[in-house]
Amino acid sequence: MAPPALLLAVFFVLPMLIMASFSFRLGTFAPERYVFTTEHYWDFISRTSFHRLLLRSIGVAFITAGASIVLAYPLAHFLVFRAGRMQLTLLSLLIIPAWTSYLLRILAWKVILGSNGLLNSFLLQAGLIQEGSARLLYSPSAVVVTLVYVWIPFVALPIFAALQRIDGSVLEAAADLGCPAWQTFLRVIFPLSLPGVAAGFLFVFIPTLGEWVTPALVGGARGVMYGNLIQDQFVRALNWPMGSVMSLVMLALMLVQLALFSRVVRLSDLAAV
């Protein structure tokens, strides 16, 4: 027991604590590193641009999570109730692309969505547009599309697991009591799958809120997210204390979210095991 606990204490809990203490420092390097101040908190509170970006990121995360669930739910439902003996094979088929390089798949999307890309060429040839445009790329919607694409399999898995747990006799009972198929879905299947839906939501919402790589690659100036702001504080602005404040704000949001969901979500669903 001791070694994993030690690892988590030193490389997970401790860094969070040090980051918290860093948020009260004046600057990144000595000697400012050793000056105590709450200035960055006040600064954060007064910067409305930060708040706007945070709200927009929350919005993007919501839309991404919602869209992923809407698109993934029918997949999971099909696999559990209709796929029969093909179930495991089809499930694997679904998961496999998720394990290939994320950066490269984003690169592929750039190729597809780019101004000379697949989609534009298709639209041009079909005569739907006059000239290739980069509007498809470098926008918040490009970020959403790319992320939804990345997350669908990961959302399908917990929903699949939740649906799989439903005892078949419950469905037979519903039918026996005269429930038509769509009502069985609304009254029995869907409520029972909610833990999986909630897990899928968290699984998407949290990393999307903290996402910085996808916006940097396909978001352009209009698609910047809160995570990019944090990254910028650490890499370009080199204002680590400010970055720590922003990270803590995000951490607090996550903990609230987790607390709200902790009653419905199973840990093992999150890991999709």
Binding site: P15, I18, L258, L267, L270
Partner: peptide, 29 residues
């Protein structure tokens, strides 16, 4: 063992922490 649930909760945390936060926290460390 005592604190089993606490350990389970903490050990699952890295799964639900945004990577950017984990990255910068380790950078500071």
């Amino acid at each position: 063992f005592p604190g089993r649930r606490f350990f389970l909760a903490v050990s699952a945390m890295p799964m639900v922490i945004p990577y950017v936060v984990l990255g910068v926290a380790l950078l500071i460390l």
